[in-house]
Design a protein around this nucleic acid. Structure first.
Lengths: 202, 202
DNA sequence: GAAGTTTATAGAACGTGTTCTAATTCGGGC
DNA sequence: GCCCGAATTAGAACACGTTCTATAAACTTC
């Protein structure tokens, strides 16, 4: 449709941002998003508020992220990348895939539970995303999957391992959602994840 | 908050509707919702349109269902109940839990895939639901879970079986969402479900 | 460094979910 | 039949995501 479509896509992916000023703007926007989400969750991430806080016009915000869902899912990807980097600097303990996956799961889960509003905002955006945010959603799904395959073994994962990682990701997300909507306690989540990983890896 | 809160809850649950006229209204609303969702998905279920089609004022619609999400999740529960009833009239083939669960899963999944817009509307509402719709969401989750436990055995399910049913439900939903957002084909979904059930029950 | 193009800005405008208001109708007790 | 409180109605009003418009600023290219 719009003549700048491919351009916009590049902006969304966060790559090839021509100028430093643009990288700055994008960062300010993501930071504002995370700050607002941390304070009040999905509903507090209002596009006008994000634009204000990032010192950017509403139109500019929409040029960088074509919708609220894109914005939040992209921010989720940024957060997961940070978590992954942190995990890379840790030696994951455990003698079996079972133990190592549980360790990783537990750690990230507790990290998310430390910031319930942010988690609520991101999981809701992720699960509400429609086809137009497919690329961003795929990226997050891939990040999650590779987090678990890495914990399972150092080698290139087999198809079976990838499948297991995907199942774990599905269950993980669904339990986060249940926790966020107060249909499950933190203990419930931990128990269910433990059980799931046991069923799949033991 | 509102003095008629408990009253409203009763209306939402669809029970104890005082008059026949009210039961009628509620049915017209759910029917209108399903019709609109079938035609155009989540976005086509517009509250004004539902009210019009159900021949009910907008305020009345909101008295029966406090939000669009409640409305759609309640309609999903109605649909699942129908599917369950149909399943009850069928003899599920298969010698093992594995085979029987796969049969049930395949059948319901194909049923949903026959009506993509309706499925999109309902899965998106379900996954977007916030804490206020917890009761409705729990009801749907319970319906899903018991569908699978019933397929696994005729007896009262063990805790382990319930846990397995829940995992299957999580994976199922997540794959439906992936299909609805065009990140997975019907074949992908079938393969992943088959693999998941195999990992869990074989 | 001027002309032309892309990007950013301020703010109005629009659509749809939700809430509110005032008037009307309905159903049950006298 | 009449009265009362609850339910329903039509429609205005409001909130927030999104789009659009007009103008200004920032860049490219020559």
């Amino acid at each position: 449709m719009s003549p700048s479509k491919s351009r916009t896509d590049a902006l969304m992916a966060g790559e090839e941002l021509s100028s430093a000023a643009q990288r700055e703007r994008r960062k300010r926007i993501v930071d504002a998003t995370i700050a607002l989400a941390s304070k009040g969750g999905f509903d507090a991430v209002q596009m006008r508020a994000v634009a204000d806080r990032a010192d950017v016009a509403l139109g500019t915000l929409y040029r960088y992220f074509p919708s609220k869902v894109h914005l939040l899912v992209s921010s989720l990807a940024v957060e997961l990348e940070r978590a992954q980097e942190k995990m890379d600097r840790t030696t994951v303990p455990g003698d079996s895939a079972y133990e190592r996956v549980l360790f990783v799961l537990g750690r990230i889960t507790r990290g998310l539970q430390r910031n319930p509003h942010l988690t609520e905002a991101m999981t809701r955006a992720f699960t509400f995303a429609d086809a137009s945010a497919g690329a961003e959603v795929d990226r997050v799904a891939w990040l999650m999957e590779s987090m678990f395959t890495r914990a399972m073994s150092d080698e290139e994962p087999t198809d079976e391992q990838k499948a297991i990682a995907r199942v774990i990701g599905d269950v993980w997300l669904s339990n986060l959602v249940a926790w966020v909507t107060r249909r499950a306690t933190a203990t419930d989540v931990a128990n269910r994840l433990e059980l799931t990983v046991r069923l799949l890896l033991k």
